[in-house]
Simulated assay, not measured.
Amino acid sequence: MSIFSSILNKIFPHDHPANTGSGAAAGAAASPTAAPGSASAPAGTPATPSTTAAGNSQPPVTPMPTVDVEAVLAKMQESSGEKLNWRTSIVDLLKLLGLDSSLAARKELASELHYTGSTEDSAAMNMWLHKQVMQKLAENGGKVPDDLKS
């Protein structure tokens, strides 16, 4: 499991689309709705794109459930008893989540998130990582305040 996947697992509920994998879960969910529409064509009528489309209306798009990332992390900090600056520090964020915060782990996370700067400049990398993680959390259905994304 990637480090970013571990971050998602710690913040989002286990049944949230960000944790269930959009590819496999979406494909499994789409199959049952597609079958009845294609079976609605009269027997003996070949299924063509026009008859399949006419008999199979698209299900309404359900918005991804939003998770208040700031509230989840604040609650985790209250429970931890540690004073961690997770709002600006990737090291403290990883510690809060109970994940490896070592330089090697942060370099691995930087690679996962396609960091193009020098991993030898850990201060610059850490600032970039924190912003990227917050941005990616927002892209995956997290409600993240703007000040945490920039």
Rank of each mutant, 00 (worst) to 15 (best):
A34I: 14
H114N: 14
M76S: 11
N19Y: 04
N9D: 10
T119E: 14
P60K: 02
S111R: 12
G27F: 15
L113V: 08
I3G: 03
G44L: 10
A28T: 09
K136Q: 12
E78P: 01
H130F: 03
S40K: 15
A54P: 05
A54S: 15
D146Y: 02
P63G: 04
S80E: 13
A53D: 10
P145H: 02
S22M: 12
W128K: 04
E82N: 03
T20Y: 00
D15G: 02
A24S: 11
A74P: 00
L94D: 06
N19I: 04
Q77K: 12
A104N: 10
S80T: 15
I3L: 06
R106P: 02
K131H: 12
W86L: 01
P65E: 03
M127S: 14
S111H: 07
V69M: 01
T33Y: 10
S31T: 12
K131Q: 15
A29V: 13
E112Q: 09
P46A: 13
P36F: 09
S80N: 14
P49R: 09
N19R: 06
A26R: 13
T116K: 15
V144W: 04
N140H: 04
P17M: 04
S2C: 09
A138F: 05
P36H: 07
L93Q: 07
H114W: 08
A29S: 14
G117S: 14
W128D: 04
L99W: 03
P63K: 02
E78N: 09
L148C: 06
T20E: 11
D92R: 00
Y115C: 13
S6F: 07
P42F: 13
G81Q: 08
L109P: 01
W86E: 03
D121S: 05
A105K: 08
A41H: 11
P145Y: 05
A123D: 11
P63D: 07
A35M: 14
T48L: 14
Q135H: 09
M1W: 04
T52Q: 07
H14D: 12
G27Q: 11
T48I: 10
P36W: 06
D100F: 09
N56L: 03
E112H: 04
N19E: 08
F12Q: 00
F4N: 04
H14W: 02
R87M: 07
A123T: 15
E82L: 10
R106E: 02
I7A: 10
S40D: 07
I7W: 06
S101K: 09
H114P: 00
S57V: 15
S50G: 13
K136L: 08
A35W: 11
N56S: 13
S89T: 07
P60Q: 05
L99V: 07
S5M: 09
T51I: 14
D146I: 04
A18D: 12
D15F: 05
A28D: 08
P145W: 03
D68M: 01
E70R: 01
H130V: 01
G117L: 14
L103N: 12
E139W: 00
E70A: 13
V133G: 00
E108D: 13
V91I: 11
H14Y: 01
A54K: 12
G23L: 15
T52L: 14
T52D: 10
T88M: 02
N140S: 11
F4H: 10
